[in-house]
Design a protein around this nucleic acid. Structure first.
Lengths: 340, 340
DNA sequence: TTGTATGCGTTATCAT
DNA sequence: ATGATAACGCATACAA
């Protein structure tokens, strides 16, 4: 446990630019330049500085730096959850891309039923991030005011609107619901079950699908909504609830692949074969969907690209680059596999 | 798109304590106290301050605050991945607990094969976090030096050693491997397949299990290691590789439930019934394991508690509270379900 | 209970 | 190419 410290052991506080400057026999300003903009410093001087940095174990203080430059290289990211598989790919992609661009990610996981998004964002802004990523497009007017007042780039993700706060990359939940509805409409099925998580965007997908399915008045549509997060257990439970509402279904439409996987498990536990006896469709094309048995028919959205591009848009805007499109619809695709 | 800004519209920079002070007809110091320690300020004064805060849309600048107090309310968290289900619960628990204690989480996802952990931590330290969470116990001596020099609390997670950098909460991968080995040893099985992700801790579990299984010289053990992250597809692929090494197995031991799920899928695709024809065991007790068909036998570790407690230990230490145990072994339990 | 002076560690700006 | 000075926004320490 007795690792050696740096030779400059007398310091209780961590070494500053001034300590490095003394060690190098230079002014703090020159050291600062050597570290941040070495091109404009004589190479031999840069070398002296580096030596002094190693000697002292100097680590820059970005609090002080950010205070003067008003740039923090920090991006705040607000997502509802990360343990339901839905947002994890996006968050990881954001983090990866930001790291490449030299930014750090301040991650805030707020849950689905937060009425305090506004307060949370306000505290995040006290770190003076250079940009912020928000999930979804529904925010309080107070939040909008705060963010616009902070005057930093914002990217909203995972939804679509022509009037974002600033920039947006996402997709239309309404269109996805409609696409799913139309896929089944006219295939001759008539008994539909909807399994939905209590998440606003999931509701939109569900309701849009129902609107389409109801175009045929013959169709029967039952639905179950359970509290987020959506996991396999919830899917199994939801299907049991559905079976109490009606004893037979042709199709179960789920608002996530995890729910779909649960429905399939529960169906097979009841000797219902998927897809022979029952069709099941999910959403998101999570990493297991293609490899499940049966492979899960789903709606694919490019979760990683969304994150990567959200980070890129932010970094570009922060760095003064031109943003080609402030609103990017990354679309979706119906992926027909075995389950439906 | 034309949301109103705060009345105090003339300011291009964001309002400071001084702006609030002017609006309230007080000194900046009084405003600071009213916000941070209202008890020592006259209630009517606090009210005046709050009014001025609302009027100006003031949001504190924690860069400036942290610079003087040397406390940032920021915790850096370093994990290999979050999209393989393994660490997500822990990260979410850390984030939740930190939020409760008033801290923000700076999340860094570094991958499994990073040789640059040291550099990454160094840049994280430039934010002057109040504490840091590291995954695993194997760090470069340079990293140790940097961290000890920074003189901030550290919690290592997901592994066990009597000599942590500072604090630790985790479990023994060696013991888990041994427990799995012993579970199967003497059950009469003799043909074992190991499916492993290329992650150091997974290797330890695998090797410890093998050591136990080899205690019976009759036993045949084949193994396949594939690059992390472990997902269902990798599990299916790995099982195919195993079947090229030997045509029959009694038991497949996987270093994660996701791999186990993949192996089961692949087995059933080949008309091998689990558990009748083949036993499969996973690791981690991920959220789907209990609800899979067959339910997956696995080793449960309390991933959320580990995160929650890691955050608690850090916050406690930062706030000067007594830490009961600097090394916490949260243990594990073999959860026997259907698959093995 | 409130106010004043000072310093935290850095960089912008201006000088040399 | 390098240095001196001031300022960033806040809280500590002390004064009133």
């Amino acid at each position: 446990m007795n690792y050696e410290k740096y030779p400059n052991k007398s310091l209780s506080r961590s070494p500053t630019l001034e300590d490095v400057a003394k060690a190098a026999g230079l002014s703090p300003m020159t050291v600062s330049r050597a570290l941040n903009n070495p091109k404009i410093v004589r190479p031999t001087t840069v070398a002296r500085v580096m030596e002094a940095v190693n000697l002292t174990g100097y680590i820059p203080n970005m609090l002080a730096g950010g205070l003067t430059t008003r740039r923090t290289k920090l991006i705040a990211v607000v997502v509802p959850q990360i343990n339901n598989n839905m947002f994890v790919d996006t968050v990881q992609a954001i983090g990866d891309e930001l790291a490449l661009r030299g930014y750090h990610m301040l991650l805030c996981i707020v849950g689905y039923d937060t009425d305090s998004e506004t307060d949370i964002v306000a505290t995040l802004l006290s770190r003076r991030p250079d940009g912020i990523v928000l999930t979804g497009i529904h925010h309080s007017s107070e939040l909008k005011r705060i963010i616009l007042n902070a005057n930093i780039p914002v990217v909203e993700i995972w939804d679509l609107t022509p009037t974002p706060l600033d920039m947006l990359i996402g997709f239309s939940h309404e269109k996805i619901g409609q696409a799913v509805g139309h896929y089944f409409l006219g295939k001759g099925y008539s008994r539909f079950g909807m399994v939905c998580a209590s998440d606003r965007r999931a509701q939109v997908r569900k309701n849009s699908a129902i609107d389409v399915l109801r175009q045929d008045p013959q169709n029967v549509v039952e639905e179950v909504t359970l509290p987020a997060p959506a996991n396999m257990e919830v899917g199994r439970t939801a299907f049991r609830h559905l079976l109490q509402k009606s004893e037979r279904f042709d199709v179960i439409i789920c608002t996530s692949d995890t729910l779909a996987q649960g429905v399939i498990m529960e169906a097979e536990a009841r000797s219902l074969r998927v897809p022979e006896d029952l069709k099941v469709i999910g959403f998101a094309d999570l990493n297991f969907a293609a490899h499940n048995r049966p492979a899960i028919t789903t709606v694919c959205v490019d979760k990683s690209r969304m994150g990567q591009q959200a980070a890129t848009m932010l970094a570009d805007k922060i760095e003064g680059l031109e943003i080609a499109e402030h609103v990017v619809d990354i679309g979706f695709s119906l992926v027909v596999r075995e389950s439906a």
